[in-house]
């Protein structure tokens, strides 16, 4: 983005945004890389931590709930943290480093989970809800292999290791399967993205999907009264994290019915999206951390 912006005079004001999940031996190393990138690219950097935003690091979450399902927390928290970090920077566009392999994995995962709503959204190159910050994935069609080759030959300083908490994650199975497919037929990745794009959701099904609303507690977009991050956080604070993992509103904690938090519980600060004026661009694509 930086190179293109300089070369073609896009007139963008770019920022680096990195989320610190609080994972010792993984994110702390990658943040060192991001700090070097800040110097190398001469761009302002913002680091927002789970600890600061939610009061919990991933290390603390894993200590409480174990290594199963921890990626659910991390994924939900990171998505919201990116939006909140972007809002703090007052930008109007988030650019992520998702590549073709990432998207194909997500298509496979959404099919296997039967998640129709996400299946429709996950292949979009650019997404924007009514009151969310625009997001796009410029590397949507670029193979992971091509990107790694490019980084190797350009001698780019980047961080690449699998997260220490992820081996049991659902995505891992999709990834292994996809890599085996790619070894047999390299076009499989782009073919899966194409299939994902070609899915049409019937109007009757669309009508049954939940409407987007804002979370009663923190103001972030949500398909329930409480957003997923608030629900998960409440579970952590009550020491009941395992209860809220199963999605679709079955195993609700009692407190999810009312939107009142218990007195001593930590909650997420209220979310305000940046105003129309004075917006800027951010670029979270350098630390490819998906």
């Amino acid at each position: 983005m930086k190179t293109l912006n300089d070369r073609y005079d896009y007139g963008l004001e770019l920022f680096l945004l990195s989320i610190d999940e609080g994972i010792t031996g993984y994110r702390d190393d990658s943040l060192e890389t991001v700090k070097r990138n800040q110097q190398q690219y001469d761009m302002p950097l913002k680091i927002l931590s789970y600890d600061k935003l939610y009061g919990w690091t991933m290390d603390a979450i894993v200590a409480q709930i174990g290594k199963k399902n921890n990626c659910t927390f991390c994924g939900v928290f990171r998505r919201q943290a990116l939006d909140r970090g972007a809002a703090m920077l007052n930008v109007d566009h988030i650019v992520t480093g998702h590549n073709a392999d990432d998207i194909a994995e997500t298509v496979l995962m959404n099919i296997m989970r039967g998640d129709i709503a996400r299946l429709g959204r996950c292949t979009l190159i650019c997404t924007q809800g009514e009151d969310t910050i625009k997001r796009s994935k410029p590397f949507k069609y670029a193979y992971e292999k091509e990107i790694v080759m490019y980084a190797y030959f350009k001698k780019l300083d980047y961080f690449s290791t699998e997260c220490i908490y992820s081996p049991d994650a659902y995505r891992g199975h999709a990834r292994v399967f996809l890599k085996d497919l790619e070894a047999a037929r390299p076009s499989a990745i782009i073919d899966i993205i194409h299939s994902g794009e070609a899915f049409e959701v019937k109007d009757e099904v669309k009508a049954m999907q939940k409407l987007q609303q804002t979370c009663k507690r923190c103001g972030y977009m949500s398909s329930n009264e409480l957003c997923k991050a608030c629900t998960l956080l409440e579970g952590l604070e009550r020491g009941l994290a395992t209860v809220v993992i199963t999605d679709r509103g079955h195993n609700k904690t009692e407190a999810e019915e009312s939107s009142r938090p218990i007195e001593t519980m930590r909650t997420i600060p209220f979310f305000h999206i940046p105003s129309e004026s004075n917006r800027q661009e951010t670029d979270s694509s350098i630390p490819n951390v998906v």
Partner: peptide, 9 residues
């Protein structure tokens, strides 16, 4: 050269 292309989680 051997490079892992696997990253993230």
């Amino acid at each position: 050269v051997f490079i892992s292309t696997l990253h993230g989680g």
